[in-house]
Design a protein around this nucleic acid. Structure first.
Lengths: 153, 153
DNA sequence: GCACTCCTGACCAAGAAGGTCAGGAAAGTC
DNA sequence: GACTTTCCTGACCTTCTTGGTCAGGAGTGC
């Protein structure tokens, strides 16, 4: 139940691309790496994955760089996380709806399904545009505005 | 963003213990392993961790076995997951409230905080008693009752 | 004393995490 | 056409995690 460095980096880089979308020129990998303090060569691999998933595009050579394949308000955080981490909330590497529970754990399936649904309700609502503007959907800001949400446990 | 085999096993074993709580006699590891189809020796390690976290108790020898340290309605799934997997929703192995984001990813922190909060809102609500009775809290059953929650994505 | 059951640490193979390195292939510039 | 720039790709590497197994020790009950 943790977020990998890769996913974190991917979202941060994508946020930079979202912010640069108005510039009308591609953003170099090096600039992204510096802006978000991400190891350049590692970032390049991540951007390549995002490209393969149709989230970003790229051009090589001088004046080359990366840009978002779609408007920033049409790209969700969920999409980016899935692109680099794979499916969300799998149990033992299989989707919760495919697992058969027996005996007294029969209803555990519904719990894992609910876990996945609640993750989706956050990650699928936040777009890159929300992220750079700071105007997060109410689902998110409500959750994050509780004092309790900020304390470790 | 996945649930490990260990966490899944731990909750399932704990559910069996919860159901056996009325029996007034300890449950042997072997019976738990068979009931939930978990490799016995692996399960023993898991139960040991749960014991160290004060969730279960155990006695050795003939007539020995495991039992819950507290009533089943006072043990949440969140507690069990934390016992075997560590803190929920850490980013790069550090809690989201400790990370400093800069530039266009400044608001990503709130997103990860919201992710953690939404996970907590599910996992901290479900007790072992809920799990064996099948009467899950409304937060959970509402999420799990949506058709959409059951489809892969 | 003996059987039973948990307790504990060591070990192990495979895979993931988090990178680095080296070179190739487009694109633009002179 | 040569050169520079920047992305593209695969190979490699170290450390940690996952998902276990093995062997023996230590309480407990009869």
């Amino acid at each position: 139940m943790r977020v990998s460095a890769k996913a974190d980096y991917a979202v941060r880089a994508a946020a930079e691309l979202a912010a640069a979308q108005s510039e009308e020129a591609p953003v170099k990998g090096e600039r992204l790496a510096e802006a978000q303090d991400i190891p350049l060569q590692f970032l390049e691999h991540i951007l390549l994955e995002l490209k393969h998933h149709g989230i970003v595009r790229a051009r090589r050579g001088a004046k080359g760089g990366y840009w978002l394949a779609r408007p920033a308000d049409e790209v969700t955080v969920a999409e980016i996380v899935r692109a680099v981490e794979g499916p969300i909330a799998h149990v033992q590497s299989t989707p919760p709806e495919d697992i058969e529970y027996r005996g007294n754990s029969k209803h555990l399936q519904e719990v894992w399904i609910a876990v996945r649904a609640s993750l989706r309700s956050v990650l699928e609502q936040v777009t890159l545009a929300d992220l750079v503007s700071g105007e997060l959907p109410s689902v998110v800001s409500d959750l994050a505005s509780s004092k309790d949400a900020w304390v470790a446990r």
